[in-house]
């Protein structure tokens, strides 16, 4: 077999959510789930988009509504295989990106396998959102299960401020 070299590409990012998604993330920081409502068709998008996909119209920051953190599971998948490989340690990363970037970048990696990702339709939204479903009662998870958001202690304005959704019935 010919030589194989192991190397990696490590890049720090600072993505711009823009005002619409930014407002949603700001809401998560306050442990509140919000959606944006299209001026034309009235659909409520959670999470919000910059554009209504049906009307192709810009969504407005003025049209945000608070939505209850409860909904229904419309699909889910159990991930058993860890395809992300081993997570790099902070020491390893510090050889590749600057110290300032390491401090600012929470290593919000995917959870340990097995874990469940679900499409959740919140009661007051017209779109689905993707998030984790966790809990001791996972054997009861099925299509149509009712779930409720559970928050992290410390929130920073990130989708993972919601720790996961828990089955309520």
């Amino acid at each position: 077999m010919t030589k194989i070299s192991n190397w990696d590409i490590t890049v720090p990012y600072q993505w711009t959510p823009g005002p619409v998604l930014g407002t949603f993330l700001g809401g998560l920081r306050e442990k509140t789930i919000t959606g944006v409502k299209c001026n034309s068709c009235g659909k409520v998008y959670v999470p919000p988009q910059d554009l209504c996909r049906d009307c192709l119209e810009d969504m407005q920051v003025e049209n945000f509504v608070e939505v209850k953190p409860e909904g229904t599971v419309e699909g889910f998948v159990k991930i058993r295989q860890n395809f992300f490989g081993e997570r790099p340690s902070k020491e390893y990363l510090s050889e590749r990106i600057s110290p300032a970037d390491i401090d600012q970048h929470p290593l919000l990696w995917f959870p340990e396998v097995p874990y469940v990702v679900a499409m959740i339709k919140l009661d007051e939204a017209d779109t689905c959102m993707l998030h984790l479903v966790k809990g001791a009662d996972m054997d009861n998870l099925k299509m149509g299960s009712r779930v409720r958001a559970a928050w992290k202690e410390e929130t920073i304005g990130h989708i993972m401020d919601i720790d996961s959704f828990k089955i309520t019935e």
Partner: peptide
């Protein structure tokens, strides 16, 4: 949007063949 990364040079470095 080059400003989405704090170092555009890392992206440019991937132009070189890796061997």
């Amino acid at each position: 949007k080059l400003n989405e990364t704090s170092s555009a040079q890392i992206g440019l470095s991937t132009v070189y063949e890796p061997l």
